[in-house]
Design a protein around this nucleic acid. Structure first.
Lengths: 334, 334
DNA sequence: TTGGTGTGCTAAATCGTTTTAGGCTAACCA
DNA sequence: TGGTTAGCCTAAAACGATTTAGCACACCAA
């Protein structure tokens, strides 16, 4: 069974295709179509269940009402929650989201950009990685709205929404120091993205401001794609050998590996040893003892992204790039 | 800057559009285009970075190389992990996934189906809810491949991939009984979907087969959309008042609320009180003590779904519906 | 010479919309 | 009477690809 086209409706209503199109697109008044015809056509559309073919519409108008979302990994709860919020908000404004994960792979990211480009998405929301600067620049040159979130690419001049990674990290370390901690470790990753560097920098600066020397032995950089077992082993050796009395994990999955490691070496979190994780996670609230975490305000981030996108979509000319740095919340538990 | 069209390439190469199209689609040989022309055109395409407009292509061919995925909630880790796996596998076979969450809302689900329909997706992967039977039937009548997963709709005759919910539940209860438990509670939801009912039925049957009377007071049905605080309160009153010595949570988010509740009433999980959760979660491994869980083999499920879809996509005629019930794994911890 | 068979290529229709430019009628005014 | 205007509607081009049908030439066999 073939689906109906605008032509079928036109024939049934005994009017032209043009007329039907005007009515569908709410231009009937403006184009002075009579009330009677409007009614008749609407009725037929209603009864027949006709839905315009979006592909044809996109081809003609050049826009798709689709926003492309490119993230690192949809199965990571930070991204899946953001995705859900963005999807929801976009949907309410008549936009659909299509998303895909880069898995921190430059080639895949480039491919995704091309794919979305050939599908003529109206705008791009990207959690970028280094190496795609040129591709993004081409999108911008073609006049596409692009919003970065979570991480920024300094060489590309486009809008960005993200948490205040530097201060979040700084405050966490400060709070350790206020509790009297002296040997504060940092578990981070070796992926070279801005938000990870910022978190690292906040750590350094807080130590410095408090007159504590930065000690490379207390900083563990985990390879991005390695097996979790290896990560756990590395964290174990960091935490069991030293007089470490506090540790900041820069991502929640590192924190989870860290907690597993702690379990194995039986190092207890408590007065003598404190932990903070970047990005909250259900497991932290449930853990015994409960784990402190830096919360990113997901709702606000999602809202900011959508607002920026819609502004750009509705204004003809290019708008200047905006940077929205959103404060985080340090939740100290137990 | 407008993007290139096939016409631009044709002009540059001084051949017809048709010829370019044949070359792009690998029909050059078959259509006896000379080696020289093929080379020339390919070179120009390469150099100019031309990418065919998929919208135009879809309009003409009627298919989009896009598979629609309709799930309950992308921020739920079961779905986000499945989505990631499906995305990955589909991608490798040249298909893109677009997904969207129904939030267990019939209207939203119907809207999504229509939306995907008007975008001419090639196939549908749906974790269905009651009330969309007719809409799905229409898709099937139009010849679209539709695969259900996680839950089934008995009135619709289409393929289904899902875990063996009944037996998973049965085995969990049996394992409680083998440990000598007598008062086994069930925390479930009031959403009326097959997989929840099956889990409930497995519970009943296991009790019955062991000569234990089914006691309604031990079964708590949580409203789907209620606040977590209320859920926690209800679970608290279930677990603190009774002599309950074991509990099965039918979803992982219920289990998480349950663990929060247990924390508040200080009921300890151990020899006297056992817990099993349906669907594993990072928090369970980390919890003290570790929480037993029923694992669904996500990888297998995703693979089965994609296989079914691709079969249907590549075969012209309709294939008979297949049901794949995949065994689960009960992971007993601590 | 005629007819048949490849080879190498292309013109034009088509998919289902949106949109521009304009046609026709009746009414109104001077 | 004729010109202008307003009201109502439509023909046809365009978006960018795929695909059908067929043209022109060369070659070969009878």
């Amino acid at each position: 069974m073939k689906s109906l086209s605008i032509k079928d409706i036109a024939v049934k209503a005994n009017v032209s295709i043009t007329t039907v199109s005007f009515i569908i697109n709410g231009k009937a008044k403006e184009k002075s179509i009579s009330e009677a015809v409007i009614e008749k056509v609407k009725k037929i559309i209603e009864e027949s269940g006709y839905k315009p073919n979006q592909i044809a519409r996109s081809l003609r108008t050049g826009n798709s009402n689709i926003i492309g979302l490119i993230i690192e990994d949809i199965s990571n709860s930070f991204f899946s929650r953001i995705a859900r919020l963005i999807e929801d908000k976009a949907y309410k404004r008549g936009y659909k989201i299509i998303y895909s994960s880069t898995e921190n792979n430059v080639d895949k990211a480039k491919e995704l950009i091309n794919l979305f480009k050939s599908r003529k998405v109206d705008a791009y929301i990207i959690s970028p990685i280094k190496g795609i600067e040129e591709d993004v620049q081409m999108l911008l040159d073609d006049g596409n709205p692009v919003i970065f979130f979570d991480r920024n690419l300094p060489d590309v001049d486009t809008s960005y929404v993200g948490a205040d990674h530097f201060n979040a990290s700084y405050q966490s370390i400060q709070s350790f120091i206020d509790q009297g901690k002296k040997n504060i470790a940092l578990v981070t990753t070796d992926i070279n993205v801005a938000q990870i560097t910022e978190r690292h920098d906040g750590y350094k600066k807080a130590l410095e401001d408090n007159g504590i020397a930065y000690n490379d032995d207390l900083v563990l950089k985990i390879h991005f794609n390695q097996e979790e077992n290896e990560t756990i082993a590395q964290i174990k050796s960091l935490l069991e050998n030293k007089k470490v009395d506090a540790v900041l994990f820069v991502t929640n999955y590192l924190a989870i590996s860290g907690l597993k490691a702690l379990k194995q070496i039986d190092k207890k979190i408590g007065d003598d040893f404190a932990v903070i994780a970047y990005d909250d996670h259900e497991a932290f609230e449930l853990h015994t003892p409960r784990i402190s975490a830096i919360q990113q305000p997901l709702e606000e981030i999602a809202e900011a992204i959508i607002k920026l996108i819609l502004n750009r979509l509705s204004s003809k000319g290019k708008l200047p790039a905006e940077e929205l740095i959103i404060p985080t919340r340090l939740v100290l538990r137990d």
